[in-house]
Simulated assay, not measured.
Amino acid sequence: MSVTLADIDTLDQAYASGDLEASSKEPLFAHDESLNKRISLYRGDITKLEVDAIVNAANRSLLGGGGVDGAIHRAAGDELYDECKTLDGCATGSAKITKGYKLPSKHVIHAVGPIYDDEEDERCAKLLKSCYDTSLELAVENKLSSIAFSGISTGIYGYPLDAATHIALRTTRDFLTSEKGSSISRVIFTVFRSIDVNSYKKILPLYFPPAPAPSEPKEDAAQPAEESKEKEKTPSAI
């Protein structure tokens, strides 16, 4: 059974239900209600999502592999493999788009993330950012309005989870607030492991914070003169 956009809470709904809480740290950006209605965190099977495109954490051959990559190819059927064979692979940091075939998703965007090397952290960060940028650009070019990301490079490619989450969220926010990003109405970060859920729940409020809590009215320390005098006349009960 497929999962539709209506089945997945947006961030403003998640904050309202208490499923997502404000960070104890100072947010990096101000609250933006319109953005919070365009972002979701979903824990489940990305192959079940009925969206315009799901983003596959692919390898350079684009011909399938383990983990999410293999699951997407199995669910889409042999026709996905056949189309991917015509694409001549994909460079690291880039992405290519195919049809979704037997998937509920109309398209698959195959993004090739970097294999993490801590001695080349800056290069890896640029390549991972490029995966998200290119995927979003492909969605816009193909007039797609909803896109679901899997965790790019955070599995066997070894990218540190929190660092990858920061890149995913910052890149997505920058894109959505740009002119070309206005046509994207929904971005879903799809996770499965509890460690991934915890990372996103910790970092999401820094980039997409909830509305500030209403401030408590301060008591007026200065009492009216007549009230003070009245209190002085009234003996205190002991």
Rank of each mutant, 00 (worst) to 15 (best):
E219M: 11
E226G: 02
L63R: 07
I97L: 14
T171N: 08
K25Y: 05
D7V: 13
E232R: 15
L169G: 03
A95G: 03
I97P: 01
T172M: 01
C124A: 08
L20N: 07
Y116E: 01
K229A: 13
K48T: 08
A58M: 10
A16L: 15
P224I: 11
D162G: 12
P214W: 11
E33D: 05
G181W: 07
K37N: 10
H166I: 08
A163D: 06
H110V: 09
I156L: 12
G65I: 13
E33R: 13
Y15S: 04
L28T: 00
D9N: 15
T4I: 04
N198C: 02
T171Q: 14
D196N: 11
K99Y: 05
G18V: 09
K48C: 03
E219S: 12
L11I: 08
S153W: 10
A221G: 14
P104Q: 14
L176I: 00
R123A: 14
E179G: 07
K233M: 09
D78Y: 06
G89N: 10
E26H: 11
C90R: 09
G77I: 06
D117I: 01
K99A: 11
R43F: 04
G93F: 11
S135G: 06
D196L: 11
S153E: 08
R60V: 10
T154L: 05
I188E: 08
T177S: 06
A221C: 06
Y15D: 03
K229Y: 12
K102D: 09
L169A: 07
H166L: 08
A30E: 11
N142K: 15
R43L: 08
I109F: 10
T171S: 15
V68H: 04
E33A: 15
K102W: 05
H73C: 07
S215C: 10
E83K: 08
K218I: 13
P235K: 14
E83A: 05
T172V: 02
H166T: 04
L136I: 03
I152W: 01
K85G: 02
K126E: 12
D7E: 07
V187I: 14
Y159I: 14
S215R: 15
K99W: 07
E120V: 00
Y81G: 04
N56K: 12
S194A: 12
I188R: 12
S130G: 09
L176W: 02
T165P: 05
S178V: 01
L63N: 05
Y15T: 07
A164K: 04
I72Q: 02
P217V: 01
I8Q: 10
T92F: 09
G158C: 10
K99I: 00
D9M: 15
R193Q: 14
L138F: 00
R193E: 11
K218E: 12
V191I: 15
A125Q: 15
L144P: 03
H31T: 02
H166A: 08
Y116V: 04
V191R: 09
I54W: 13
R193H: 14
L87D: 01
S135K: 07
L161N: 14
P114S: 14
L127C: 06
S228P: 00
V108I: 08
I203S: 03
G181M: 08
A76K: 10
L176R: 00
A58W: 07
L62N: 05
Y159T: 12
R74P: 00
K129W: 09
L204M: 14
A95K: 09
I72N: 02
A213Y: 00
C124S: 11
C124R: 10
R43I: 05
G66P: 02
A148F: 04
L41D: 01
V108D: 04
G77K: 10
